[in-house]
Simulated scan of single mutants.
Amino acid sequence: MVNLPGKEDKAQYVQETFNAIAKNYDLMNTLMTLGLDKSWRRLEVKRAELKEGGTGLDVCCGTGMLTMELARAAGPAGRITGLDFSENMLEVARQNIRDFAFKDSIRLIQGDAMSLPFENNVFDCATVGWGLRNVPDIFKVVQEMARVVKPGGKVVSLDMAQPVTPVFRELYWLCFNRVIPAMGKLFSGNKKAYDYLHDSAKAFVHQKELAGIFARAGLVETRCLNLCGGVVAIVEGRKAF
């Protein structure tokens, strides 16, 4: 068990943690989700309603997998920006998009999700995948994402959630607690980082509460969509016209 950092220390802790595991992050994601992460990302992009030729922002973009899904949806005329705090994750993202068909549509930048370096109302949608549980202030990040999205645009999160069935929930967390850190040690040599991923996922707000945070940030039509019995969830909202 890892003692989760407080708000004042979380940014640095998260940056150091993801810098350390960047090289094997994609492999671990595939193993931990049994390959389902790909279909989940595609569904998130569908919920974001990004049209061909549109502009999208992927916050906490990591290794760029969700960023590339946005670029596929927007096509060659689209403009997609991926932003992340971790320079090592961004370096892996640059490698991932090197031979990608829509690489010219993607811009990757290092930045802080708590203070997005963009003007108001510039993106058709904003997404975040497995990122909100790692930020010091969830409300502030959702508020920032809403600020930079155009009126009518969607803000969509995909993240770990709280399983909805009691018995399944206990078995799931027991497995997560034992198996995932062990896999992290085996495949990345960093058990501590995957202890953190377990602990941060378990401590993350319930998906219904997250939908409430979206509403408090000024978004409308907020809802959550449980996947795999609530192991993960998509939470979304729309910026009012």
Rank of each mutant, 00 (worst) to 15 (best):
residue 177 N to Y: 11
residue 231 V to T: 10
residue 137 D to Q: 10
residue 8 E to S: 13
residue 49 E to I: 02
residue 138 I to P: 03
residue 123 F to N: 08
residue 154 K to A: 11
residue 66 L to K: 05
residue 57 L to N: 05
residue 208 K to A: 09
residue 95 Q to D: 08
residue 121 N to M: 10
residue 12 Q to I: 13
residue 194 Y to A: 01
residue 176 F to S: 14
residue 59 V to D: 03
residue 40 W to A: 06
residue 111 G to C: 13
residue 152 G to Q: 03
residue 140 K to V: 09
residue 127 T to S: 10
residue 179 V to P: 02
residue 137 D to T: 13
residue 95 Q to V: 13
residue 119 E to W: 12
residue 41 R to N: 07
residue 226 N to Y: 15
residue 212 G to F: 07
residue 42 R to Q: 14
residue 191 K to V: 00
residue 228 C to K: 15
residue 155 V to S: 08
residue 144 E to G: 02
residue 168 F to S: 02
residue 81 T to S: 07
residue 97 I to D: 00
residue 176 F to C: 08
residue 119 E to L: 15
residue 71 A to S: 12
residue 112 D to W: 11
residue 83 L to E: 01
residue 64 G to T: 03
residue 175 C to I: 06
residue 81 T to I: 14
residue 215 A to I: 04
residue 86 S to F: 08
residue 160 M to F: 13
residue 241 F to S: 12
residue 23 K to D: 10
residue 56 G to H: 05
residue 170 E to L: 11
residue 128 V to C: 15
residue 237 G to R: 03
residue 130 W to K: 06
residue 195 D to A: 11
residue 166 P to W: 02
residue 136 P to C: 10
residue 72 R to N: 15
residue 47 R to D: 02
residue 70 L to E: 13
residue 134 N to S: 11
residue 221 E to P: 10
residue 235 V to Q: 04
residue 223 R to N: 12
residue 103 K to F: 09
residue 135 V to D: 05
residue 146 A to T: 11
residue 142 V to R: 00
residue 161 A to S: 14
residue 118 F to G: 04
residue 93 A to R: 09
residue 31 L to V: 13
residue 238 R to W: 03
residue 152 G to H: 07
residue 110 Q to L: 11
residue 78 G to L: 10
residue 100 F to A: 02
residue 215 A to M: 08
residue 40 W to C: 12
residue 13 Y to I: 05
residue 210 L to N: 01
residue 107 R to Y: 04
residue 228 C to G: 03
residue 88 N to W: 00
residue 230 G to P: 02
residue 58 D to G: 07
residue 224 C to E: 15
residue 162 Q to N: 04
residue 178 R to P: 06
residue 211 A to G: 02
residue 90 L to R: 02
residue 190 N to Q: 05
residue 181 P to W: 09
residue 18 F to D: 03
residue 150 K to W: 12
residue 194 Y to D: 00
residue 128 V to E: 01
residue 108 L to M: 09
residue 62 G to R: 03
residue 57 L to S: 03
residue 199 D to T: 05
residue 188 S to V: 09
residue 217 A to G: 05
residue 172 Y to A: 01
residue 26 D to A: 07
residue 46 K to R: 12
residue 166 P to V: 00
residue 236 E to F: 03
residue 96 N to C: 01
residue 214 F to C: 05
residue 134 N to V: 08
residue 208 K to V: 04
residue 122 V to N: 10
residue 229 G to V: 03
residue 119 E to Y: 11
residue 152 G to P: 11
residue 206 H to A: 15
residue 86 S to P: 06
residue 229 G to W: 08
residue 177 N to L: 14
residue 4 L to G: 01
residue 129 G to W: 07
residue 38 K to W: 12
residue 209 E to T: 06
residue 132 L to E: 07
residue 25 Y to P: 02
residue 30 T to N: 15
residue 182 A to C: 10
residue 211 A to D: 00
residue 10 K to M: 12
residue 39 S to V: 12
residue 38 K to H: 13
residue 35 G to A: 07
residue 4 L to N: 00
residue 183 M to D: 01
residue 206 H to F: 02
residue 232 V to M: 08
residue 59 V to A: 06
residue 191 K to W: 06
